[in-house]
Design a protein around this nucleic acid. Structure first.
Lengths: 377, 377
DNA sequence: TTGTTGTATGAATCTGTCG
DNA sequence: CCGACAGATTCATACAACA
């Protein structure tokens, strides 16, 4: 196992370039991905990116609080009768994927909690070697409208080499540079695909689950070299192809639906090679720090049950377990209660409320500063 | 399926409190967790938090599901045997965990990419229903010293109810309050356990994978009610017990190693419970007693024959003696008529309809608040 | 031209109770 | 088990409409 930024000569000879001449490079092949992959030669592609169906198992319609209906994924291609059938499908396409992958190649698969555990288990069972699990944190996820669970704000990617001893590609320097000279972590922050980037067809979205180009950009930059062959067995609207073209990688797409193939073809034809300025927006992986008052309670910087007061000790409030505070029977956030006691329309609770320290009263904001200093990634 | 902040009477009856009297509350039971759980009654605990081992090779020995050991030297173990044994172990303890969990209980399991996919698959296969996968982002992870992969900066938690239809506990308001009035997301940021919190024994860390109390604090606050019974089958140094005690939850620990039990016992003995007022959290309106619109009419808070309208005075309706309202000859509840005038599928009449006051238009919901305050016992 | 306000929407396993 | 109905519930972003 190890890192390759420059392939040693003997490996080059073991996987000679001429093999690529038989590959359908830069093409979208229509058909079932298992059957299409079966027709490709062993050990022939450098990387596989796969965004398989998630098997969402949704119930009835879901309505937003303001009345709109959520446009859910209700396509036939996402429906499987049982988990066993889904597993069988997963193992079948993974087996073909592994066969056509070069010995030093790697695979990326994206999923959500509905399917990613099945996929990860299958990947391990088939002899792939997991290198990382990566979390795509969405900066703008859909909320949980009914307040029944935590906002489902991320998806998971699995990165695995063909086998344990593989000398896979990982462009460590490129990733570190992309992350302001800090090692790139396993949690990535990107917005969901929308705006100009989101492909439309007849006024509505061309594909229900189009992935952002920034995500593929980071993946291809991290785990392939220029000229490498990237295969995407669930091509959809061709994000993988478009980004591969921009980054000077070869690509092969497999897709069943004619509509998606049309959209993807146009899109990739229009894709331009790398434009430095356009990349800027994709290169700010760091999240803006935001600390909730409740976090200070959870982490023990301020104890539940302790007392906070204003700078002149006119009002005293008690901190509760969930980060709300109580004053005279009224409860709410530090901001809301701060405003209420002053009969002001609003209040910055961070600077209004103070806590006792050895050096006298200090604004709770100083605790936030301390917390940030201690936890800044 | 749904959220419970207040259990309905019939469910209380189905899972009576007396059962808890037979449980070893506040105790650490020494032994193999599968055997110990096997001695606990069906449907008896409200929540299970589990931090199972992910490296099967501990002290050179390989664990077996039965709790016995295997000589790893004599046998020709490859990774597939290891995975199979791990799966067997996982399914065995999960099966016992599910049996002793109350029908409306839930389970949390934490792991990394080495084991979480096996665990997640087993959880789904055994009939648990996944509610969320949660990412614990570490603010100060161990760097990848060799620069061969992405910094492994997170761990994954799976939260699942006993079955699909379970009415699990989720304290939505408390989580929202804890997060500065924004829905709590599925990605959580905490530092790894260190400093004063990290338990030492003979100068070195007492346990290799001690979890931060802040993590357990959020989990218990989110998914249990005061007095609930929380079981931890891999108790270690007792973070679950210490936080449960602090938050007024009952706990049961299972642990094999005598050293860990000693450390955990001392730690929990020293933990201080929060007093009742600090323990209070923000409650959803769901948990408050219901007030019918008609009650406000009966009690004179709103006069029969008076007029209500929406916030922009587009629609006006008349209040009738039985608490129904009339708009353009159509009559029904405030919700039904509110939905009808907007041509929306549904509507919360409490916030949609307003009444005239000295301070201008106010939602009729404020009358309900006034009524509740006045009639509070 | 510029700022403000309103509306649309994103891989979602999204209610509770009573008859 | 199903239908009816009360009533609880949303964050970030893009873009159009409007001032």
């Amino acid at each position: 196992m190890g890192v390759i930024e420059k392939l040693p000569t003997r490996v080059r000879k073991a996987a000679p370039a001429p093999a690529a001449k038989n590959l359908p490079l830069g093409q979208i092949i229509q058909g079932d991905c298992i059957a299409v992959m079966a027709a490709l030669p062993d050990d022939s592609v450098d990387m596989i990116f796969a965004d398989p169906p998630y098997n969402l198992q949704l119930g009835g319609d879901l309505y937003r609080p303001e009345g709109g209906r959520v446009d859910a994924v209700d396509d036939d291609w996402d429906k499987f009768d049982t988990l066993a059938i889904y597993d069988k499908f997963t193992r079948a396409w993974l087996a073909e994927a592994r066969r056509i992958l070069k010995p030093n190649g790697s695979i990326w698969v994206i999923g959500s909690y509905h399917n990613i555990f099945r996929v990860g288990t299958a990947i391990q069972d088939q002899g792939f070697w997991i290198l990382n699990d990566i979390v795509w944190r969405k900066s703008n996820p859909m909320p949980n409208f009914k307040g029944t669970r935590f906002t489902n704000a991320h998806e998971t990617l699995i990165w695995a080499s063909k086998s344990e001893g593989s000398r896979y590609t990982f462009n460590y320097r490129a990733m570190k540079t992309l992350n302001d000279e800090l090692q790139m972590r396993s949690d990535w922050l990107f917005p969901v695909c929308g705006g100009q980037e989101r492909l439309k067809r007849g006024g509505s979205k061309a594909h229900p689950t189009q992935k952002p180009e920034a995500l593929l950009y980071r993946i291809l930059l991290a785990a392939t070299k220029p000229g490498d062959v990237v295969l995407d067995p669930f091509f959809g609207t061709g994000t993988t192809g478009a980004v591969a073209k921009r980054l000077g990688r070869e690509w092969i797409g497999i897709e069943r639906e004619t509509d998606y193939i049309e959209v993807a073809s146009e899109r990739i034809a229009a894709a331009l090679p790398l434009d430095e300025s356009a990349l800027k927006t994709m290169q700010s992986p760091k999240a803006a720090p935001r600390v909730a008052f409740g976090t200070l309670v959870e982490t023990g910087y301020l104890k539940a049950g302790s007392e906070i007061c204003d700078a002149k000790r006119r009002w005293r409030a008690e901190v509760r377990a969930d980060g709300s505070i109580e004053f005279n029977g009224e409860t709410g956030s530090i901001h809301k209660i701060g405003a209420a006691v002053q009969k002001a329309p609003s209040c910055n609770g961070w600077t209004f409320w103070h806590h006792e320290t050895a050096d006298g009263l200090k604004p709770v904001d100083t605790l936030r500063q301390t917390y940030l200093l201690a936890t800044e990634p």
